[in-house]
């Protein structure tokens, strides 16, 4: 009973937060609502005992991705009028996409009637079953090569992103730590020996 109540509580918050992402006029509020979405979906994942994925969702999306999102949103001066300019013109496209999604969700929910109920959830696992361990065994064992390929693709993407945004500014004064550390007093200071003045 309690898990059900919790589920509906989190689901309500999740839906409300998702609506808030779209309708809030302030982009910072929209980003914060998205954070709330991630946190509540992590809570729902915890309810179905996917604790590793739930914590990683909070760690990666809430802890890193959304921080950078907020960072950018706060620095940009977003003109909402410009963003809303084509709202009525493209509304029909939005309605079609929304309709398709509603149909898809209905399809998933209604499959219960066909005897292939996917909404019932998996069978309860034994108490000593470790989600994290199983996930690791699959990722590093059975799917090791796809995993490595995904890692390489990500690495290439990072390099490409840096290469695209890197600007070489002329006359930029940068610190060369290696040269600073290698500097010796003998190169910097020249001691000059001079005769002291003679007083006649």
């Amino acid at each position: 009973m309690l898990p059900l109540i919790l589920f509906y509580l989190f689901a309500t918050v999740l839906v409300l937060a998702a609506v808030a992402v779209i309708v809030s006029r302030n982009p910072v509020y929209a980003a914060l609502s998205l954070v709330l979405c991630f946190v509540t979906s992590a809570a729902i994942w915890l309810l179905i005992e996917a604790e590793f994925l739930a914590i990683v969702l909070v760690l990666v999306y809430v802890g890193a991705v959304m921080v950078l999102f907020l960072f950018v949103i706060m620095m940009l001066d977003i003109d909402l009028e410009e963003l809303r300019a084509g709202f009525t013109r493209f509304a029909w496209l939005g309605w079609i996409v929304a309709g398709v999604i509603v149909l898809e969700i209905a399809g998933v929910v209604l499959t219960g009637k066909l005897g292939i109920d996917v909404t019932r959830g998996a069978a309860p696992l034994p108490a000593n079953y470790s989600n994290t361990q199983e996930l690791g065994a699959l990722l590093y064992g059975r799917y090791a090569y796809p995993f490595e390929i995904a890692a390489m693709v990500l690495l290439v993407a990072i390099v490409a992103a840096i290469a695209l945004t890197l600007r070489h500014r002329p006359n930029l004064k940068a610190q060369d730590i290696g040269r600073q550390v290698a500097a010796r007093a003998s190169e910097r200071v020249r001691l000059v020996k001079m005769d002291s003045e003679h007083r006649e």
Partner: peptide, 17 residues
Amino acid sequence: VDAGLLYVLSLTSMGVY
């Protein structure tokens, strides 16, 4: 908590908000 280390990491990353 079995994933305690991840829990700590995810909580400390929330502080920046």
